[in-house]
Design a protein around this nucleic acid. Structure first.
Length: 494
RNA sequence: GACCCCAUCGUCUAGUCUGGCCCAGGACACCGGCUUUUCACGCCGGCAACAGGGGUUCGAAUCCCCUUGGGGUCGCCA
C-alpha cells in the first residue's frame, strides 16, 4: 500500500482494497447510537446528521440504536427526548430504534464464545486493587493500564465476583484507515485488556458496539473523534470474533468558545432548548452541516442539497468552535424565506405560550409577513408582535413621554375620524388617508408616524406603520387612537 | 504524564491530495456609507489569517522534518 502522509483527501482512492473499507457496490449501512443519559445535544445532533446525510446520499440505510447499557443513568424520558429531537430535525431513521438493553443474550453469547476460545479471561482483581495501581501509575507519570495480573492464569468461574477481560494483542500494531483522518496506527502494547463483562454480568460498551455493528451489518461507523482511541480495541474484538471490520470516519469534535470540548458550561444546549428558543430545523441542520463540512463557498443548503452534496471526503479534520451568532443568522435567513402560512403555524405555540390566545391562522399569516424580516427567532417574533395579539398594550414610559404629547391629540382625532371611512382597508388606501390628514394639518409624515406607532404598539420600534395599521384592523386602531388621546388628555389635567 | 489527532482572518471555512491561476477567496460578527415613517431588511465599502523554524524546488498556504500551540483519550461511562 502506498504510504500516507501529510495532507490527506480523497479517501476512496487511497482506501481501495483496504481490509476495513467496504467496496462501493455493497449497500451502505450506518447508525447513530446515542446513549439515553441526557438530551440530544448539538454535537450528537451533528453526528446524527452526518450519518443521515451519508445514508441518504449513498442510498443506504440509517439505523438508530439506543445504547442503554448503563442502567443507572439511562432514562426513558431521555430516549423520548432524543427521538423527538431527531424527528424535529427531520432525521428519519430506517431501522430501529433498537435497544441494547433488549439484546442482552447476543452479547452474553459473544462473551462466552470468546471465553471458550480463550480470547477473553476471568479477572478477579478488585476495584480497590485496580484503583491503587492506577493511582500509582499516575503518580509515576505513567499511562494507567491494567497490568495483566489474571491474563495468563486461565481462572475458572468460582463463587467470587469477577469481570471478563478481552485478551488483546500485546505486540505489533493495530491500524485502520479513517475516512476523515487517514491512517491511524496504535502500538498494541499501548492497549490494555479491557473489561467486556462487568462483575454484575452486564456487557460493556466497547463490546456491545462490536456485536451490534456486526449484527446490524453496519458498513460505516461515523462517530465523534472522542472514539478514536476505542477503535483499535473494537477492531481487535471484531477480528477475535471473526467478523469483517467496518470502515470508520471520526468526525472532529465541536468546541466551546474557549476551544475546549463543548459542554453545558459553554451553553452547549440540548436540541429541546433550541426548539424552545424558536430556532427552525432548517437553520439548525444547515448550521450543523457547515460546521466541519463544506462545499466550496456555499453557505445555504436545503436538506435536499445536503443529501446531494454531502460526502465524507469533504469533512474537515480539525475541530470547530460552535458559533451561536452564525446559527442565529441562518435562523433569521430561514425565517425570512419561509412561507408566511407555514411560519404562522410554527409561531402559534410561541404565541400561545405567552398567553396571547390562538389567533386565526390566515390573519396570523398577515401579521407574520410584517415580522419576518426583523425576527431572528420565533420567540423574538412572538414578543415583537405582542401588540397584534392583545389589546392590553402598555406604553413604554419613555416613548409615551416623548411622543404622546398634547400637540398630537388633535391630529390623532383627525386620523381616527378619517380612518373610519378608509376603503379598502389596506396599506395603500391607509397611507393615502394618512397623507391627506397630515397635509390638511400642515404636518409631516415623520412628525406623526412615531406618535401613532406608540399609540398602536406601545413602542417606538415596530414593523412599517401602515402595515401595522392594516393588520391590527380598523376598529382596534380607532380604539387605540382613542385610548391614546384619553391618555394624553389625562396627563394634561395633572 | 503516556498515547492519538489537529493547525488559513475573532469564528466557520475555500484553496492543500494533483506546488505556480493566492502579496490568499467566501460567510458570521464588527466598523463605515446608502436606503428610510421607527427598528430591521437590503445594497455598497472596510478591518482581519497561511503558528514558528528549517529543508526540497526556478517557485510552497500547498511537499518533508522539527518546534510550538490546541484538542481528545487513558472508567466494572458511553
Amino acid at each position: 500500500m502506498r504510504p500516507i502522509s501529510g495532507a490527506f483527501k480523497r479517501p476512496r482512492l487511497y482506501f481501495k482494497g483496504h481490509k476495513n473499507v467496504k467496496d462501493a457496490t455493497s449497500t451502505v449501512r450506518v447508525r447513530f447510537a446515542p446513549s439515553p443519559t441526557g438530551h440530544l445535544h448539538i454535537g450528537g445532533a451533528r453526528t446524527a446528521l452526518f450519518n443521515y446525510l451519508y445514508a441518504r446520499h449513498t442510498g443506504g440505510v440509517f439505523i438508530l440504536r439506543i445504547e442503554d447499557t448503563d442502567r443507572e443513568r439511562s432514562k426513558e424520558e431521555y430516549t423520548a427526548a432524543i427521538l423527538a429531537s431527531m424527528a424535529w430535525l427531520g432525521l428519519e431513521w430506517d431501522e430501529g430504534p433498537l435497544f441494547q438493553s433488549k439484546r442482552e443474550g447476543l452479547y452474553q453469547a459473544g462473551i462466552d464464545r470468546l471465553l471458550a476460545e480463550k480470547k477473553a479471561y476471568r479477572c478477579y482483581c478488585s476495584t480497590e486493587e485496580l484503583e491503587e495501581k492506577r493511582k500509582l501509575a499516575e503518580a509515576n507519570k505513567q499511562k494507567p493500564m491494567y497490568d495483566g495480573t489474571c491474563r495468563d492464569k486461565d481462572l475458572p468461574a468460582r463463587d467470587a465476583p469477577y469481570v471478563v477481560r478481552f485478551r488483546s494483542h500485546n505486540s505489533g500494531v493495530t491500524d485502520f484507515l479513517d475516512l476523515i483522518k487517514g491512517r491511524i496506527v496504535f502500538e498494541n502494547k499501548e492497549l490494555d485488556d479491557l473489561i467486556i463483562r462487568r462483575s454484575d454480568g452486564s456487557p460493556t460498551y466497547n463490546f456491545t458496539v462490536v456485536i451490534d455493528d456486526m449484527d446490524m451489518g453496519v458498513t460505516h461507523v461515523i462517530r465523534g473523534d472522542d472514539h478514536v482511541n476505542n477503535t483499535p480495541r473494537q477492531i481487535q474484538i471484531f477480528e477475535a470474533l471473526g467478523y469483517p471490520v467496518p470502515a470508520f470516519a471520526h468526525v472532529p469534535l465541536m468546541l466551546g468558545p474557549d476551544r475546549s470540548r463543548l459542554s453545558k458550561r459553554h451553553g452547549a444546549k440540548s436540541m429541546t432548548e433550541y426548539i424552545d428558543e424558536g430556532y427552525l430545523p432548517e437553520a439548525m441542520v444547515n448550521y450543523l452541516a457547515r460546521l466541519g463540512w463544506s462545499h466550496g463557498d456555499q453557505e445555504i443548503f436545503s436538506i435536499a442539497e445536503l443529501i446531494e452534496k454531502f460526502d465524507i471526503a469533504d469533512v474537515g479534520k480539525s475541530a470547530g468552535v460552535f458559533n451561536p451568532e452564525k446559527l442565529e443568522w441562518l435562523n433569521a435567513h430561514y425565517i425570512k424565506e419561509s412561507d408566511p402560512k407555514a411560519l404562522a403555524g410554527r409561531l402559534l405555540p410561541f404565541i400561545e405560550a405567552r398567553g396571547y390566545g390562538s389567533p386565526d391562522a390566515p390573519w396570523l399569516a398577515r401579521a407574520v409577513v410584517t415580522l419576518q424580516e426583523r425576527s431572528k427567532t420565533l420567540v423574538e417574533m412572538a414578543e415583537m408582535g405582542g401588540f397584534y395579539f392583545t389589546d392590553e398594550i402598555a406604553y413604554d414610559p419613555k416613548a409615551a413621554a416623548k411622543f404622546l404629547t398634547a400637540d398630537v391629540a388633535a391630529p390623532f382625532r383627525a386620523l381616527a375620524e378619517r380612518f373610519g371611512s378608509v376603503s379598502p382597508w389596506e396599506t395603500g388606501a391607509i397611507e393615502a388617508a394618512f397623507a391627506e390628514v397630515i397635509e390638511g394639518l400642515g404636518l409631516t409624515l415623520a412628525k406623526l408616524a412615531q406618535p401613532l406607532r406608540v399609540a398602536l404598539t406601545g413602542k417606538t420600534v415596530s414593523p412599517g406603520i401602515f402595515e401595522v395599521i392594516e393588520v391590527i384592523g380598523r376598529d382596534r386602531v380607532i380604539e387605540r387612537i382613542g385610548r391614546a388621546v384619553a391618555f394624553i388628555e389625562g396627563n394634561e389635567k395633572k
